[in-house]
Design a protein around this nucleic acid. Structure first.
Length: 257
DNA sequence: ATGGTTGCTTAGCAA
């Protein structure tokens, strides 16, 4: 099974690119973030024609996540439930090919010390509580999406410039370690231990041409799933050309699924 | 320190 996670930064602005990429990359499962639209305006028909079923958690203008799959999508669950009650569309869980897939779009946090930053830390703590309450690390679980966190300095082209930012600062990295400690392996890092492979480049300041990027989009797998991972890579081609998202897809393959 | 770019929605916010 080939799975991808991609912050597409508006699915309606990127639909033609998405359809062309699905046809060439041939993923079985795709987790999208920042679809920036509602269920009603989601291009369900176009994706069905391309061979994908969709589970969508939408919101006007901001956020929004969706899971696309060639097979059945079952037991769809939206949000963090009792662990964090709000109206931001940031988490969608579903069973796909025997895997519990959790598609996440973490809050960015804007500035350290801001209300948005406090919300980010609260959201991350609630995610750990959600995992504790609903799932077991002995199950095949994949937590993937845009985490808005660079796990360590191997995920950052210029670590000094970002050390104090909402993407890298110690409280945020600590909150991510708390989530990882539930029972996840960073399967991308496992297969790319040298680091310095990025998934996001700012639109400004020639971020991509300079490869001034960060790895913010992650694939975290529980042990029984991590052991099946054959490879993981970033599809940098999708950051090139006309009107790219500021993120590239991160992909992996699992054996025997 | 600020601004640089993009998308949604149409001025300002979020990233």
């Amino acid at each position: 099974m080939i799975l991808a996670t991609w912050n597409i930064n508006s699915i309606r602005a990127r639909l033609e690119r998405l359809l062309a990429w699905l046809a060439s990359a041939q993923p079985d499962v795709v987790c999208l973030q920042e679809i920036k639209t509602t269920e009603a305006k989601f291009p369900t028909a176009e994706l069905a024609t391309a061979g994908y079923r969709c589970a969508v958690l939408g919101q006007p203008t901001y956020n929004g996540v969706a899971i696309l799959a060639r097979g059945e999508i079952a037991n769809v669950a939206a949000g963090l439930g009792e662990h964090l009650r709000d109206d931001q569309a940031r988490l969608l869980g579903a069973d796909v090919l025997g895997v519990r897939v959790l598609n996440v779009y973490f809050p960015n946090g804007q500035e350290v010390g801001s209300k948005a930053f406090e919300y980010k830390l609260q959201w991350m703590l609630a995610l750990r509580q959600y995992l504790d309450a609903r799932l077991r690390p002995e199950q095949p679980v994949l937590l993937c999406g845009d985490f808005n966190v660079a796990i360590d300095d191997l995920d950052v082209a210029h670590p000094m410039q970002w050390a104090a930012s909402v993407l890298c600062c110690p409280p945020v990295r600590g909150a991510l370690e708390n989530i990882r400690a539930w029972g996840f392996t960073d399967i991308f890092r496992q297969h790319n231990p040298e680091g310095h492979i990025y998934s996001w480049w700012d639109y400004r300041q020639l971020g991509f041409p300079r490869n001034d990027g960060l790895r913010l989009d992650h694939l975290l797998a529980s042990a029984p799933l991590a052991s099946r991972c054959r490879w993981a890579r970033v599809d940098r081609e999708q950051r090139k050309g006309e009107k790219p998202s500021d993120h590239a897809p991160v992909m992996c393959e699992f054996a025997d699924l």
